[in-house]
């Protein structure tokens, strides 16, 4: 199944990935990381197409994308 992995240690909680995903599969959590930023979370692995738009928008290269096939 296509999915993304968000590196919580790199995420600065800017939220740009949340509006980049055409399927709205990324949301902001309330959990702060070690730098104090509330990190982004991936919601629904079922629907992810592996299009990588979320990752392309992330200024901190915090998202790795895996695609089926």
């Amino acid at each position: 199944m296509s999915h993304i992995v968000i590196d919580e240690t790199r995420c600065k909680g800017c939220g740009l990935c949340t509006i980049a995903c055409p399927r709205k599969l990324v949301a902001m959590s309330d959990t702060p990381n070690s730098m104090g930023y509330t990190v982004a979370v991936f919601c629904d692995a079922e629907k992810c197409t592996g299009c990588a738009l979320c990752a392309e928008m992330c200024p901190d290269v915090a998202i790795a994308v895996f695609k089926d096939k």
Binding site: T9, M35, K67
Partner: peptide, 27 residues
Amino acid sequence: MKQVFQKPESLKDVQTHFCPGCSHGSV
């Protein structure tokens, strides 16, 4: 399963000092 997006090799694996959302990271 194939990784289709990852950190480029020419970038070091470190956190930047840029503010959240700063475009410098993207560039």
